Amino acid sequence: MRSAAGDAHVRTRATRTLVSLTGPAGNIGDALIRRGTLRWALDTSDELIVYTGDSPDVWLRQLGVPDDATVLRSKRSVARWLWMLATAPARPVLVFEAGEVPLHRGNGLRELVFLIETMVVRLKGGVVVRPPRGIRSPSNPSRWLHARAVRLSQVALWRDEASAALIGDGELAPDIGFAAAKSSPESEARDELIVSLRGARPMPDDDWIQAVRATAEAAGLRIRTVVQVREDESRARELASALGGEFDEWGDTDPVAHEESLRARYSRARLVISDRMHVLVLAAIDGAAPAELVPAPTRKIADAFAAVGILDITLDAANAPSPDMQAFLMTQLGRTDQTGERVEAARRRLDEIEDQVRQTIRMSRA
């Protein structure tokens, strides 16, 4: 049994930060933006509480969660998360995770809980931080509840103008993935064209295959397909065969090691073609030219890149003949320097925002 004298030597936690970092270990893009979210939360309080949901152990290593953090695992720990929020000392910090915010009709209860969490933190004199996010499937009452929570938050950021306009509050900011940009990515050995597409989409048609092969030949590039999301592995294998390129499998490789290998590939690429947003973000921050070339693309990628000044990286392949697709890809190859400038500006802007977040927290405790 611990004595009263022993208890006296236990340091009282003066401040507490709670941060949500859920996500699948099989999605490198999710790890990228959750890692950026964690960076904003680190060293803001004496105690760090991290909620990871059902994520496996390797997810903690992917994000770099500190050993002294209190980690809440699985959905069964939600009650403990709420209790630690409700019993937090004065002026706590609550950091929501970056990424997509699903606001479909079935998410009303979830958004109500988030609104209550926000109100609790504000009543305690604390700070609520919502990193750059994008709204998906907006509907009421979820949208209305989310808008109320945003207006109560000191920091609320959107990675695209459409999301900001939908809520009517908050500021436009680069996707937090751009914060990991290299200050001067190497470019001497860029001799590859990389492709990474969603496995859930139909296989590209012959015109698409011809355009990509012709672009690689004209630019003197080798074609390689990679896997950034585990569920896309079969599609990457199919594409490598159709394109006459090399295939990098994920297989049983540890996610941390796979991310290192993947980024090394992007650092050798001149052009990366994908319909996954954070494939293109990682490509851009590692110095490659990003291009979205699929039938009927959504506005998600175009809007998020437009927010950092990178325009016209998307072409709808549905009705574009092969020569038009090739011309589009060759245009992207010529925009590397411009893209690099925009990426560096986005990185600097995110650094400024992080400084502002930390200053907001310091002022709340002054």
Rank of each mutant, 00 (worst) to 15 (best):
W40E: 11
T12Y: 02
V50T: 04
P66C: 12
R61C: 01
A25N: 04
S45V: 00
L42C: 12
D30A: 13
R73S: 06
I49H: 03
T52S: 03
G26L: 08
R11G: 09
W59K: 08
E47P: 06
T37Q: 02
Q62M: 15
G29Y: 07
T22H: 08
R39F: 07
R16D: 04
L48W: 07
R73M: 03
T70Y: 04
H9F: 15
S77D: 08
V58A: 06
S74V: 01
A69T: 09
T17D: 07
V58R: 11
R73Y: 07
T52F: 00
L21Q: 04
P56D: 11
T22W: 00
L60G: 01
R11H: 10
T52P: 00
L21A: 01
G53Q: 03
L48V: 10
A69M: 11
S77C: 10
S74T: 15
L18Q: 12
T52N: 00
D43P: 00
R34Y: 01
D67P: 09
L48A: 09
D30L: 00
T12W: 02
Q62W: 02
G53H: 02
D67Q: 13
I49M: 02
D57F: 01
R39N: 07
S74F: 02
V10H: 14
T52Y: 00
Y51G: 09
K75L: 06
V19L: 08
R13L: 09
N27D: 10
T70F: 06
R39S: 15
D68S: 09
T15N: 01
D43G: 13
D43I: 07
A14P: 00
A25Q: 14
H9R: 15
S45G: 08
D46R: 03
